[in-house]
Simulated assay, not measured.
Amino acid sequence: MLRKTNENNQGTRAKARIVALDRARTFIILLVLIHHSVVNYTHFGTGDKMRWLGFDLVVLFNDSFFMACMFLISGLFVHGSLTRRGAANFLGNRAWRLGVPFLISIFVLMPVAYYPTFLRYHLPGTTDFNFSHFWWHTLTVGPWPSGPAWFLWVLLALDFVAAAVWSVAPRVVAALGWAIFALRNRPVTAFISFLIFSVVVYLPMHLIFGDTSWLEPGGYPLPIQTSRILLYAGYFLTGVGIGAVSLKAGILADNGEVVKRWPTWLAISLLFYGAILLLVYAHHNSVVDFTAPPLSWRAAYGLVFALFSAAMTFTVLAGSLRLSESKIGLLEAMRPSAYGIFLVHYIFIIWLQYAVYDYSWPAAVKAAVVFAGTLSLSWGLTVMLRKIPAVARMI
């Protein structure tokens, strides 16, 4: 609920606050591009023959927090939008900005993106599938991947849940908002509470389903990682609660106690990540059955995963707000195009990985080419698409 006030300095700060949170979203999208650029060159992957252990550490770091953090950021402005628009208009807007891009992604963008994978494993002369055949086979026989677009349908579903709760029981949303708001001057309590909350919504699902299980109803491109269903929903609704009272004066106030302590949250995050690395090392060197680690190991890994996810989410949000006046040229330049870059980047990721596959370049060189090419091409395409008014209102 950031609104322009009559006092110029407060109005400027409100505007800066919006920029800071938008920068946090842009930062996560940049991590998504880095993640997808390097995952093909990790040792646990099945992609390129050139690999580097450093990329395994990057992927493990990102995967352990960044999408949960993105769901929380996505929830921050939901209550304000519902209040301004009403539930029907809010959902119509979300359907336009999330539902339409999701449909375009699964019917057009992802088949185009995944076609090189098909070409890699079906050499010329071994099949008569051209792209039209491949596209039709994808939609009718499968597999029908959604790629990164899975985030869009899950976020849209959560928006519907939030709108329903707000319409039927607005006091529940208000109560959640005030409970979080009350922690604005108690940063340690807020931090520990979020750590505990993360463990509660993640650890039981992790122990029941593991991290390799994906729920994909009916084989349609509506996947979600089973163990993270409650984690993503919980973070999103936490974001809704944070925004339900006041973003300007609440727990994410730019000069608030939580934001001031962002270096502390970062240090704790790195300690938790170190614990994750120790458990991964133990898994590779001490667990007898690599594919079926004991319950004690799975419980310990799930615990530190949840703690790291919570601590890094605090770090990203608090750091973005505390450093809102700092000049970070790439993030500032990317901000208007960030959503569009997220939508189209996977096409360039896979095609560029396909293009450099046969070269014996070091993994770092291949990843750098893929990342630089993907960022520039998806950015350029987004800028051109945003010149179309209807598209600009969407992305």
Rank of each mutant, 00 (worst) to 15 (best):
E7L: 15
E7N: 14
Q10F: 12
R13S: 15
R13F: 12
I18Y: 09
I18N: 10
A20W: 00
R23A: 07
A24K: 06
I28M: 06
L30P: 02
V32E: 13
V32I: 15
I34D: 04
H35Q: 15
H36N: 09
W52D: 06
W52T: 04
L53V: 15
L53P: 10
D63F: 14
M67F: 15
M70Q: 03
F71L: 00
F77L: 13
V78S: 02
V78C: 01
H79L: 11
R84M: 05
G86K: 08
A87I: 10
A88W: 12
L91E: 03
R94C: 04
W96S: 12
W96R: 15
R97D: 07
I106V: 13
F107M: 12
P111F: 09
Y114A: 13
P116T: 01
L123T: 11
L123W: 07
T127Q: 05
D128E: 11
H137F: 12
G142I: 12
W153P: 01
W153S: 04
A157K: 02
F160R: 12
A162L: 05
V165W: 05
P170W: 03
A175Y: 08
I180C: 10
F181Y: 04
L183N: 05
R184I: 06
N185K: 04
N185R: 04
I192D: 13
F194C: 04
F194V: 04
L195A: 14
L203N: 11
H206G: 11
F209K: 02
F209N: 05
G210F: 01
L222D: 05
L231W: 03
V240G: 00
V245M: 02
V245N: 00
G256I: 07
E257K: 15
V258R: 03
V259T: 05
L270H: 11
Y273L: 10
N285H: 13
D289S: 11
S296E: 11
R298F: 00
V304A: 04
V304E: 06
L307Y: 07
S309L: 13
S309P: 07
R322M: 14
G329C: 07
R335P: 14
P336A: 14
I341C: 05
F342G: 00
V344P: 03
Y346N: 08
L352F: 03
Y354S: 10
Y357E: 12
Y359M: 15
W361P: 09
W361C: 13
P362W: 01
A363N: 08
V370A: 00
G373D: 10
S376D: 02
S378D: 11
W379H: 05
W379I: 02
L381D: 09
R386Y: 01
P389L: 10
A392E: 11
